[in-house]
Amino acid sequence: MIIHSLGKGNSLLNKFVAEIRDAKIQKDSMRFRRNIERIGEILGYELSKALNYRSQKVHTPLGTKEMSLPSDDLVLCSVLRAGLPLHQGLLNYFDNAENAFISAFRHHRGDEDAFEVIVKYFAAPSLENKTLVLTDPMLATGKTLENVLKALKDHGKPKQIHIVSVIGSQSGIDHIREVFPENTQLWIAAIDLELNNKGYIIPGIGDAGDLAFGEKL
């Protein structure tokens, strides 16, 4: 797996990541969603450099210009519900992409820390020979993305997979490195080293879905 950890350098990206981490600023759910969306736009721009391009003539009112334009058939697939703002950020740039959505959630049995990831809803076009962009803002244990990959198998084999996340844990990244194809590329804004005993990223941000859309039962 090729890992692009974009927060290592100095850029405006780090300002948006700092704001979604900040316990005071993140209470503004509208700003939280917008910051995730802006992070998605930046990650999408960087991802675009790894796509395939073809030369195409563009006709202006005064002449013709040869330009290199993206040629991949993209499918953006996001994990509900936390992935929606990140999905929108990518869709702002890849506006011709097809879209897929999948629900995956942690199921804890009683008060145990252990959990399983359950996939219940999936809507997607054919993925055969297309470029698949999987978006999940928090890459914690990697189990969600592993289960998403299993659910995708009946929809065709993509020629390339890109994963887009905001914050990930090192152990989660190590896990998906083992289960995804070798040529998969990960685009991520920040990597934290720790997980707590419940599988949440430390220091992380908390629950991205709750921060974006409110607490759930």
Results as ranks from 00 to 15, higher is better:
A82K: 02
N96E: 09
I3F: 08
T131F: 05
V166S: 04
I188K: 00
Y121M: 03
R33G: 12
K159F: 01
H59Q: 14
S55L: 12
V148N: 02
A97V: 11
D28W: 07
L145N: 00
F115Y: 15
A114H: 08
D73A: 08
L217G: 14
A114N: 11
C77Y: 01
A82M: 04
Q160G: 04
F180K: 00
V58P: 06
K150C: 04
D154M: 02
D111H: 10
L76C: 03
K143I: 13
F101C: 06
E128Q: 15
A18K: 05
A18L: 07
E146F: 12
Q88I: 15
P181H: 10
P85S: 10
L211E: 04
T60V: 10
I176W: 02
S5P: 02
G40A: 05
F94E: 13
L217H: 13
L13W: 07
S165A: 14
L186R: 00
H175Q: 12
S71L: 09
D154W: 00
S55H: 06
R54K: 11
G110W: 02
A140Y: 03
S171V: 12
G142W: 11
E194A: 15
N196W: 09
L149S: 10
D28C: 06
K159T: 05
H162V: 02
S126D: 09
L69V: 15
V117Q: 07
G214A: 05
G214Y: 04
Y45P: 00
Q26V: 13
R81D: 10
S103M: 05
V17D: 00
G7K: 00
N196H: 09
R33Y: 11
A50W: 03
Y93C: 07
G172I: 06
L149F: 12
H175M: 12
S11R: 08
I20S: 01
L91G: 01
L43D: 02
I102H: 04
R31D: 14
V119S: 03
H59Y: 15
P61M: 11
I163R: 00
E37D: 11
A18M: 06
N96T: 14
I20R: 00
K157W: 03
P85D: 11
A104G: 14
Y93Q: 13
E146D: 15
P137M: 09
D113I: 01
L84Q: 02
S68E: 13
K65F: 13
L211D: 04
S48C: 09
I173F: 08
V79A: 03
E215I: 14
S55A: 10
R38C: 01
L91E: 05
E19G: 08
S165R: 00
G63Y: 10
Q185K: 10
G199W: 06
F94A: 14
V164K: 00
M30I: 10
D210T: 12
R21T: 07
I102F: 08
I161R: 00
N92W: 11
S71K: 09
F16A: 02
H155Y: 15
P158M: 10
E19I: 08
G44F: 09
A189D: 05
V79G: 01
F115K: 01
K8S: 11
I191T: 07
K8E: 15
F101A: 10
A124F: 06
F180S: 07
K27P: 05
V119G: 01
L152H: 01
I176Y: 03
A151E: 12
F115P: 02
S11Q: 12
R31K: 14
S48N: 10
K130S: 11
D207H: 04
S55D: 14
V133Y: 02
